[in-house]
Structures are given as structure tokens and as C-alpha cells.
Amino acid sequence: MPDLSVGLPGLVMHNPLMLASGVQGGSARALQRVAASDAGGMVTKSIGPVPREMYPGPVCVEAMDSVVLNAMGLPNPGADVFAEILSNENFSKPLLVSIFGGCAEEYVEVAKKLDDAGASAFELNLSCPHSKPGSRALIIGQQAKSIHDVVSAVRDAVDAPLYAKLTPNTTDITIEAKAALEAGADGLSLINTVSAIEVDPYAGRPVIGNLLCGLSGPAIRPIAQRKVAEIALSMRRGEIPSAPILGIGGINTGLDVARFVMLGASAVQIGSALIWGDVEKFKEISVELSEFMDLNGYRDISSMQGIALDSLEGLS
């Protein structure tokens, strides 16, 4: 049987399949339910400085086959309540605590509270509007300078491993990757959802309560793969520091995992697929991945990693 285990900063996992942020992982009970599944690791719902309510519904729909739209509104219990959860619970799987804020100071505030409560590693969700005047039109993850500010501030405040979660909604994702890694991130997670809007022509308005939304699910997988490949290639060429990449976007089968790994990812995260299979998806995907690797003679994850990049080497 192939060895699916991976060891990354803060993430020693029996397989490379993690729960993506924002899907089910907002409470102790929900995280325990995922921990009891075959997931290798988990990312929490993004936690901010104060509690936040959900946006008006519909908050998440499947607009067409495999085209998932959501605008949940980052509902979360806030750093204080989540700190209590972290101090009271033991999880059987490694946990990245996803955090967000409107500026570097807020990220630091949340990171410190959760670090004190025992968080062993963080994912910085950079897909948040900047709250400071002058930068509001863009999210933090679209501005290399803001990324640098946030990551280096959190880097200074806590010792735990940091993964910076990148948005695909920029021109050249290697710029944001570079900013995060040079500021001290230990790894990268990508991609977050793709900016989207869908209108119902009979209703004459957008179908999501919040009007604007993010696109996820199998529809975005090739986009995500491209972004992972661009960053991995840039690392190979030594243009940006090397670090593990957690591939995210539309993963629904074991073959999808292999695709991301072959483009350079060290592990993956799975979100929307739970719509169709709930937490049993982790078992299903790990069995498929294991069978695929067995059939094709891949001993372990690292023996597959990056092999599809070789053909891209010559591209500039």
C-alpha cells in the first residue's frame, strides 16, 4: 500500500486531505465530527476579532452542476469564544486555525488570543476587505504591501507555523506568494474562491442574498491548478522562496488530489465536495488516491510531487 502520510510545518498527517476553511468547521462539535472522519487534517472556519452573523440567504447554492456559489459573510463566534473552544477541546487531527481581520493589528490580536489558547498553527485568510482608508476597494490579499504587513506582524507576534491563504483574483499570483513568503510565512494555501455573480433572469436580481459571491467547486479546479503551478514553477526557478503549498479548489476525487500534487502541492484542502458527500468524502478520496498510486507505482506523495511541472520548465 502506498504511504499517504505527509509532514509539513505544524501538520503531521496520515494523509494529505484537509478540510478547507469555512466548510463545517465553525464549532467544536462540527470539527470533532470531521476529526472522526478520514481527513488528515483540518482548517477551522475563519475567526475574526468579534463575533459575526451570517449574511442573508440564500448563502450557498449550486448554480449549475459543480458550480458552487457562496457568500456566507464569514460568520464566526469571534476570537474569545473560539479561544475557549481551543482550550477545552482535544482534536485527534492537526488543526490550522484560520484567522482574519481588517488590518495587521486585528490579525495580531486574534492570533495572540488563539495562540495563548493552544493553537498549534495558523492559516491567514487574506481575502478580507482592508479596513484602513485608501485601501478599502481591495481585499488585503490583492495588495502585496498589505500581505507583507499582515504576515510579518503575525510572524512577530507568534511562533506557530503560518500558512498564507491566497486569493486567485489578482494578475500574477507569484507576486502575492513572494510577499507572503518573504514576510515569514511557512507555507501557502491556495486558492480561495473566485469572484463571481449570478443573476436569476426571472427574478431580475442576483441569486445570492449578499448579491456578490465567491465561486468554488469543480468548476474552479483548473484555475486553482494553474495558480499552484505558477507558484511552484517560480519556486523551482528560485524566483521566490520555496515552501510547502496546500492546493485548494474543486477537489472531488483521488485523481484531483494527484493532479495538484503533480503540479507541486504538498497536501490539499477539500471544501465544496462535502456538499455531495459530507465527511465521508475524505474516506472516498483517500481510497481512490491510494488505489491510483498503487496502480501507477507511486510509493508515497513525494514521489509524485511536481512531476507534471517538468514539462513546464521551459515556459517563461
Binding site: S27, N70, L274
Partner: peptide, 20 residues
């Protein structure tokens, strides 16, 4: 049931999701 899609995780009773 906020989402009905097994994504928000806010509809639990015991270790089950009411929406699914």
C-alpha cells in the same frame, strides 16, 4: 437551516447535520 448544503455546520443535533 442556514444553508441546507452541509457547508455551514450550524444545524447539528448530536453528531449529525439536520440538513442532510
Amino acid at each position: 437551516l442556514p444553508c441546507s448544503m452541509a457547508v455551514c455546520g450550524l444545524c447539528m443535533v448530536g453528531d449529525r447535520l439536520i440538513c442532510k
